[in-house]
Simulated scan of single mutants.
Amino acid sequence: MARITAQRAADDPHLHHLDGLDLYGEADSAELPLPGQLHPDTATHRRIVERFVKRMFSADGPFAGPTS
Rank of each mutant, 00 (worst) to 15 (best):
A10H: 06
D12K: 10
R46D: 13
R8I: 00
S29F: 09
H17V: 05
H14K: 15
E26A: 13
A2M: 08
R3F: 04
V53F: 12
D19L: 07
P40V: 07
L34Q: 01
R51N: 11
A59T: 08
A27I: 10
K54A: 15
D22N: 07
A10G: 03
P13C: 09
H17P: 00
Y24C: 01
H45S: 06
M56K: 01
L21P: 03
D12S: 10
P13K: 12
V53L: 14
P35S: 06
R47S: 11
G36F: 00
L38F: 00
G25F: 04
A10W: 09
D11K: 08
Q37L: 08
L23Y: 12
F52R: 00
K54S: 14
T5H: 01
Y24W: 04
P33N: 06
T67R: 12
S29Y: 03
Y24H: 04
D11F: 07
S58V: 04
T5C: 12
Y24K: 01
E26H: 10
R51Q: 10
F57P: 00
F57D: 03
A64G: 09
L21R: 08
L23R: 07
S68C: 09
L23F: 12
H16L: 01
D19P: 07
R51M: 10
V49M: 08
P13G: 12
H14E: 09
A10E: 15
S58C: 15
E26P: 03
H14I: 03
P35W: 03
P33Q: 06
T44M: 08
F52E: 01
F63A: 15
P40S: 13
P40R: 10
V53K: 13
H45M: 14
G25H: 08
L15G: 05
P66V: 09
L38D: 05
D28A: 10
L38E: 02
P62V: 15
A59V: 06
D19W: 11
H39V: 00
A30Y: 14
A2D: 03
G25I: 01
R55V: 01
A30Q: 12
D41W: 01
Q7Y: 05
F63D: 12
M1A: 13
F57I: 00
Q37W: 09
L23M: 12
R47K: 15
A10F: 04
T42R: 12
F52T: 06
Q7A: 12
K54Y: 13
L38M: 04
L15E: 07
R3W: 02
R3A: 12
Y24T: 04
L34I: 02
T42Y: 08
G61C: 06
L23Q: 10
L15N: 02
H45W: 13
R8N: 11
V49D: 01
F63W: 15
G36L: 05
L32I: 03
L38W: 03
R51L: 09
I4T: 05
A59G: 01
T67K: 11
D19N: 14
Q37H: 09
